[in-house]
C-alpha cells in the first residue's frame, strides 16, 4: 500500500482544531479579542480569503455538476467534447486529479454514469404506462431528453416527473402518433404519485355539515391527494393492466450501482378512444382509480375550483341529468364521497 503523501499546507496552516485548543478560557478569549481589535486589516484579509475559498468551492462544484449532468454517449460513456468544443479530458483535468489507474476523465465519468443511471431509473419506475406505450428504447430516449430539459430541482426523485405532461405537450414528436393518449396517460401516472403519499387533511362529517350549512354559501374542500381527470381514453384500464406486471418501486439510499438491467417491457396496444372521468385517490394506503359519472365529475371539479355547493350541483343538473332522479343520485354520490373521506377542512 502506498503511503499517503501528507500535504504540508494542512500542518502549516492554523487549523480550527489548533485554534480551538488554544483559545479556551476567558483569558485566552480576551487576548484574542484584543488581538482582533489591533489586527483588523488581518481579520479583513482572513475574511476575504475565506470568501475566495468558498467561491472557489462553488466554482469547482459547478464544473463537476456540469460534467456529470451532460448526457452520455450512445455507448453510455462521457462525452469526449466539452461544452466549448475543447476535449472533456482537458477540461476535467483542470480540477480532477488522475491516479495511477484512472485518468481525470475516467474518474468523473463514474459519476456521470451514476447520475444518468439513477435518474433514468427513477423515470422508468414512475412511468410504466408511458414505457409500455412507447417501448423501452423510445422511452429511454424520451427520458434523456426530458431530464436534459427538466433536471431535478427537488431533494427527492419523487418529484422528477412533475413536468412530464408539459414536456410531452411541447414535444409531441416523442409520442407520435399517440400524443393525446400519452398525455392522458402521464396525467394519470403523475396523479398516482400524488395519491400515493399526498397530504391528507382531517375529513369532514358531511351529514352534519349539510344539515346546518346553507348550500348557497357552503364551499367544500377536497383532499389534496385526490386528482380528478377527464380523459379521452380509458387510461385507467390500460395502466392497471401494465402495473400488474411491474416490480415494486425502489427507494432512495446512498448505494450506487452499475446500469440496472430490467426485464424487457412488453408493448401494449393503444385502446380505442372512450371518455373516462376519473378520481385518483387513496384508500387504506392503496391508490385507486375510480370511474365517475360525467355529472359527478362536474360537481367535484366545481367544488375543487372553489365554487359553492349550490353552484356545483347546478352545473351537474343543467347538463342533462333528469330532474326526477337527480336529488337521490346526488345524495348517493355525496354519501359515497364522504365515506371515502374526500371532503376536508380548508
Amino acid at each position: 500500500m502506498k503511503k499517503p503523501r501528507r500535504k504540508k499546507t494542512a500542518s502549516r496552516r492554523q487549523s480550527a482544531v489548533a485554534v480551538a485548543r488554544r483559545a479556551t478560557g476567558s483569558v485566552a478569549h480576551a487576548k484574542l479579542k484584543k488581538f482582533a481589535t489591533i489586527n483588523e486589516p488581518a481579520a479583513q484579509r482572513a475574511a476575504a480569503t475565506e470568501k475566495a475559498g468558498r467561491q472557489e468551492m462553488r466554482e469547482i462544484q459547478r464544473l463537476f455538476a456540469k460534467a456529470i449532468m451532460r448526457p452520455l454517449t450512445k455507448g453510455y460513456n462521457m462525452q469526449p467534447k466539452w461544452t466549448d468544443g475543447r476535449s472533456t479530458k482537458k477540461a476535467v483535468g483542470k480540477f480532477i486529479k488522475p491516479n495511477d489507474r484512472l485518468s481525470s476523465f475516467e474518474r468523473i465519468e463514474i459519476y456521470n454514469k451514476q447520475y444518468w443511471f439513477r435518474l433514468l431509473d427513477s423515470l422508468y419506475e414512475d412511468f410504466p404506462g408511458l414505457r409500455a406505450l412507447l417501448g423501452d428504447a423510445r422511452f429511454h430516449q424520451l427520458s434523456i431528453a426530458y431530464i436534459d430539459k427538466h433536471p431535478s430541482t427537488s431533494f427527492t426523485l419523487r418529484d422528477l416527473g412533475q413536468h412530464m405532461e408539459k414536456f410531452l405537450a411541447k414535444n409531441p414528436k416523442w409520442t407520435q402518433p399517440h400524443e393525446k393518449f400519452a398525455r392522458d396517460l402521464v396525467r394519470l401516472e403523475w396523479a398516482h404519485i400524488l395519491a400515493f403519499d399526498g397530504a391528507e387533511l382531517p375529513p369532514l362529517e358531511i351529514d352534519e355539515l349539510l344539515d346546518r350549512a346553507d348550500p348557497a354559501t357552503l364551499k367544500l374542500n377536497l383532499q389534496p391527494y385526490l386528482t380528478l381527470l377527464a380523459c379521452d381514453y380509458p387510461v385507467d384500464d390500460f395502466l392497471i393492466s401494465v402495473r400488474r406486471r411491474e416490480e415494486p418501486r425502489g427507494e432512495a439510499s446512498n448505494a450506487i450501482s452499475e446500469k440496472r438491467t430490467h426485464a424487457r417491457t412488453k408493448k401494449v396496444k393503444v385502446p380505442t378512444p372512450e371518455k373516462a372521468y376519473l378520481a385518483i385517490h387513496r384508500q387504506d394506503q392503496g391508490v385507486w382509480y375510480k370511474r365517475l359519472d360525467p355529472a359527478a365529475y362536474r360537481v367535484l371539479r366545481a367544488l375543487q375550483k372553489g365554487e359553492t355547493l349550490q353552484k356545483a350541483v347546478e352545473r351537474a343538473a343543467l347538463r342533462g341529468k333528469s330532474a326526477e332522479n337527480f336529488p337521490r343520485t346526488l345524495q348517493n354520490w355525496f354519501a359515497q364521497w364522504a365515506a371515502f373521506g374526500w371532503f376536508c377542512r380548508a
Partner: peptide, 30 residues
C-alpha cells in the same frame, strides 16, 4: 447525513459527491 454536496444553483444530482478538502470548504460545512 453525509459530508458531501449534491446540488448547486438549485439543481440536484441525487448523488453524494466528494468535497474539495479545503479549509474554506471545512468552515462552510461546519
Amino acid at each position: 447525513d453525509h459530508l458531501c454536496w449534491g446540488s448547486v444553483d438549485g439543481r440536484f444530482t441525487h448523488d453524494l459527491l466528494p468535497m474539495p478538502y479545503t479549509f474554506a470548504a471545512a468552515e462552510h460545512c461546519a
